[in-house]
């Protein structure tokens, strides 16, 4: 089980990378847990999660090779 995580905006300052791979997670809750363990500073920042370009609400199951995006508050326009 391999999840591609892509990171944007301010969150890149925390992870130091715009793309990382997370293994062995079954859903977005487990993914978040692993991310927070790896990057403790992430806990304090607000962000939305998109699975395959769709913003999700609540815990969502993940499939192998899914792309999950971490989206901090938008600033377009």
């Amino acid at each position: 089980m391999e999840i591609n995580v892509i990171i944007f905006g301010k969150l890149i300052d925390i992870t130091g990378s715009a793309a990382i791979t997370i293994n062995n997670v079954a859903d977005t809750e487990q993914l978040n847990e692993q991310l927070h363990n790896r990057y403790p500073a992430l806990t304090g920042y607000p962000y939305l999660i998109a699975v395959e370009k769709e913003i999700i609400q609540g815990n969502t199951p993940l499939k192998n090779k899914d792309t999950v995006a971490l989206l901090p508050p938008y600033a377009g326009g």
Binding site: F8, G9, K10, A50, A69, L71, P72, Y74, A75, G76, G77
Partner: peptide, 14 residues
Amino acid sequence: TVERLKAELPIWGK
């Protein structure tokens, strides 16, 4: 359109 794109498009500004 302006209001919606500011709220809904994943764009970031440094």
